[in-house]
Simulated assay, not measured.
Amino acid sequence: MKKLFHALAPGFIMLLVFILASCGGGSTGGSSSGGNNSGGTGGGQPLNITFLPKAINNPYFDSAASGGKSAAGELKGTFKQVGPSSASASEQVTWITNLTQQHVSAIVVSANDPNALAPALKQAMSQGVKVVSYDSDVAPDARQVFVNQANAEDIGRTEVQILGKQINYTGQIAILSAASTATNQNTWIKYMQDELSKPQYKGMSLVKTVYGNDDDQTSFNDTLSLLQAYPNLKGIISPTTVGIAAAARAIESVNKGGKVALTGLGTPNQMRKYVKDGTVQQFALWDPGKLGYLAYYAAAALVQGKITGKEGDSFDAGTLGKKTIGANGAILLGPPTIFSKDNIDQFNF
């Protein structure tokens, strides 16, 4: 009998394993907080996707997060947003390390510093985490794709063109940026400077660029400092949603609304008051909700293996239609909208 048991045992164990597997006993799948609990993709990989913006509690990134949540609902995936309370590259690195240890399927990040984040993101990718940058890019070898809100050159040149018309192409101007290391800000400023070198702007001079670090109070104080240091200042460009709103408030606080022109990138809901009272004539922005929506779809396509990040790869982006990856792994959302009194009430974000 003992010999018979030893002879039958291996076959019996194999049969038991087969039965358990057939009943789903081998499943180890789970879900994360902040989204649809099914976590399904139809492709066998869970969509456990986390957004890491420059800073949380920022209206711009909150709007982008809403778009990401909508995409998660459509794809039956999960959505979570984490990040520093103020723009900090070192804190973003800590979050990236934590998310890698949690084995999320994708990190969608807007970089405070393109190079400082690179080692941690490369480590995440080496462990199978997909990396998508959005809004502000990281070093290209530290992500698979970059979801670009609009053509960087168009943004930079448009800001100068808007301001030039308002001040009759004459006078001192300044730039109020976000962090000095922010990839998108520095790229736009480079094109602003190039646009200013054209003959039609010979009467305009860029006297200073300051950095409010996407902090409301810092940006407010920087604007007041500019107005004090340059009493003949004619205009300010602030290509950051936190900065432009703080600058508008600062200009009004010293009764210079309509005397110092202000343009930049802002959300309609933030800027509506200042447009209607004449402090700001025009500003521009894309829809951040659509940016977050597209970034989630891109991350999902990477997780599902539908794209790899190479130029020419294409994927379905829900209501935004088919999107194709361009040079350097970039996916373009589309051109920005210019807001004024004539159209601002048509938008709610």
Rank of each mutant, 00 (worst) to 15 (best):
V138C: 14
V242E: 03
Y201T: 03
M204V: 00
K202H: 15
G43N: 11
S66K: 15
K341C: 10
A174S: 05
V108D: 06
G203V: 01
G77P: 00
W95K: 13
S126V: 12
G258F: 13
P46G: 10
L117A: 14
F283S: 04
K310D: 10
A111H: 04
A106P: 03
G43P: 05
I167R: 04
D135A: 01
L294C: 05
N37H: 14
E252C: 13
I49M: 13
L262Y: 07
A55S: 09
I338V: 13
K76P: 04
D141W: 15
N37K: 15
L320D: 00
G212D: 01
P199A: 08
F315H: 01
A178S: 13
G34S: 10
G243K: 05
A7Q: 11
K3C: 02
E195L: 12
L52S: 04
V254D: 04
G42H: 06
Q282F: 06
D214W: 03
I331M: 02
K122H: 07
Y230G: 07
T218C: 00
T97M: 07
P335F: 14
E153V: 01
D135T: 00
Q185V: 13
N269H: 10
A116E: 05
G68W: 05
I344Q: 05
A111C: 12
S27T: 05
S33P: 08
Q81C: 06
V138S: 09
N343E: 02
S63D: 11
I251P: 02
T337I: 14
I344S: 04
T279H: 00
P288H: 09
P288K: 04
A229I: 05
A139R: 04
S253D: 08
L163I: 09
K80A: 05
T187V: 12
H6A: 13
G326A: 07
K165F: 07
W95Q: 15
P46N: 15
V260W: 07
T279V: 13
D215G: 11
N343Q: 05
Y274K: 12
A124N: 00
K198L: 14
A298I: 10
T41A: 12
P335Y: 13
T170M: 04
A261F: 00
G156V: 02
G326L: 05
I173L: 02
A139V: 06
D316A: 12
G67M: 15
V280Y: 02
G26R: 09
A65Q: 09
Y60M: 10
T50M: 15
F5A: 11
Y230D: 03
L47S: 02
A284Q: 11
Q281T: 15
A317S: 08
L285V: 00
Q123L: 08
I13M: 07
G171E: 00
G24D: 09
G309D: 01
S32F: 12
G264M: 04
G203A: 11
Q304E: 15
K322I: 11
S27M: 09
M271N: 08
A72Y: 02
V207F: 00
V145W: 01
T50V: 15
Q200L: 09
P59R: 01
T267G: 03
Q200G: 10
T181M: 06
D214K: 07
A327T: 14
A72M: 07
D154S: 12
S219P: 09
S105D: 11
Q270F: 10
G292L: 02
G30M: 12
A64T: 15
V160K: 01
Q228H: 14
